[in-house]
Design a binder for these strands. Structure first.
Lengths: 257, 257
DNA sequence: GATCTACCTG
DNA sequence: CAGGTAGATC
């Protein structure tokens, strides 16, 4: 089984890139972030033509998440948002179970800047995520999505430029470690201890062609799931397309048995 | 020599359609309307690569006109806007002389609706155009562009739907006849007395595929130029492209000698 | 730099 | 329906 995560930065202007990637990469499950579309305007028809069903949880303008599953797979026990979220909270989490695997798809708040209230909201959101995840450690678990945190120095092209940013400041990295302390492993790093690969590059200043990137799209897994993984990779090719998302997919391949 | 007129409805998102049409139709002179771009942002490089120079007179958001001339032709005595226009007037007219022919490229105001001040401005603009044109009747003259007037019933798919519109109301048609009374002929109609062909179709309601169009893009000529014309045609093919302008080009072919 | 919401014109 | 603007977010 192949499980992928991709922040598409709005699904509607990205449908061509998304469907061509689905054809090429043939994932079984795709966690999408920043769909930026209300559920009644989600392009369900085109997703169906591409061979996928979708569990969706979106809003206009900002945020929005979805889990695509290849026809034939069943997604059960769908949860939307954190249990501690208010009814009117940003739509940032959707989870479900496929083939006995709990899949949690997150779009962690960006935080704007260190001094902003949004940064405190981000840190708090992460702690509330930790609380929810703790209830699912007894089954194979993958938490994937746009974490808006680069875990370590190797995940940033230039730490000097980023250590005062909301994506790499020590406080948010510590909070990520705290979330992971319940027994989660950064699966890409586990399989590639020394790889300097990124999943996001700013649209500005030709950041992609200079490879000024960060690895902020993660797949955290518990022990039970880690044992099932064959490899984890980052597919840069969608970032090279015309009108790309600023993020590129992270792909988790499970062992065949 | 081939002289064409095309309201491109913003030149920047239309560059692909424009350059491929230049390659196919090989006009010597092209009068463009609604370029919607300030002169320092005009895509002069791509126009040059296509083999043309451009005399431009644009503004942001609205209006804007340009005359493209194939390399090797010279454009002289360029005039911008009506002599009676204020300095801050809409940019709606550019004229120049090529090979002894005076070419006046106009984007006549739309007028919004019959009751709007914009409609009076349209009627006034047409009268002021007449005054300027009167000074050029002693040389071969072509006045082409988007007149935002369908001259006769045959130029409208359904007169009932349009006779209370700013594009076909009796007052604006009378004003057009008044402009033409100085000795100008509707060249397309001269060569095709019975042709029901249109140059504009609304983007809405599938108007193009139903052929709900109007002929509002005209090439008016004086006697001296009429004698030089071989034929006048409307090229529908650019309207069939992806992301088309709502207008399609009018093409005037001069006799070879 | 590339989305979105809005509103404005044609 | 398809251009444009501005201001906001990431």
């Amino acid at each position: 089984m192949r499980i992928a995560s991709w922040n598409v930065n709005s699904i509607r202007p990205r449908m061509e890139q998304l469907t061509s990637w689905l054809v090429r990469a043939k994932p079984d499950v795709v966690c999408l972030q920043e769909t930026k579309v209300e559920d009644d305007k989600f392009p369900m028809g085109e997703i169906g033509e591409a061979g996928y069903q979708a569990a969706i949880f979106g809003q206009k303008t900002y945020n929005g998440v979805a889990i695509l599953t290849r026809f034939g797979l069943s997604l059960s026990d769908v949860q939307k948002n954190l249990t501690s979220d208010e009814a009117d909270a940003h739509k940032r989490l959707i989870a479900g179970t496929v083939d006995g695997i709990r899949i949690v798809n997150v779009y962690v708040p960006n935080g704007q800047e260190l001094s902003a209230p949004a940064y405190q909201y981000k840190l708090d959101w992460m702690s509330r995520l930790k609380a929810d995840l703790s209830a699912h450690m007894n089954e194979p678990l993958i938490v994937c999505g746009d974490f808006n945190v680069a875990p370590e120095a190797i995940d940033v092209h230039n730490t000097k430029k980023w250590d005062q940013s909301v994506l790499f400041h020590e406080t948010v990295r510590a909070r990520l470690r705290d979330v992971m302390s319940i027994g989660l492993t950064d699966s890409f790093r586990h399989f590639h201890p020394d790889a300097k690969e990124f999943s996001w590059w700013d649209y500005r200043l030709g950041a992609f062609k200079r490879n000024w990137g960060l690895r902020i799209d993660l797949a955290l897994v518990n022990e039970a799931l880690l044992r099932k993984i064959k490899d984890v990779s980052i597919d840069r090719t969608p970032r090279e397309a015309e009108r790309p998302s600023d993020h590129t997919p992270v792909v988790v391949d499970l062992l065949d048995n």
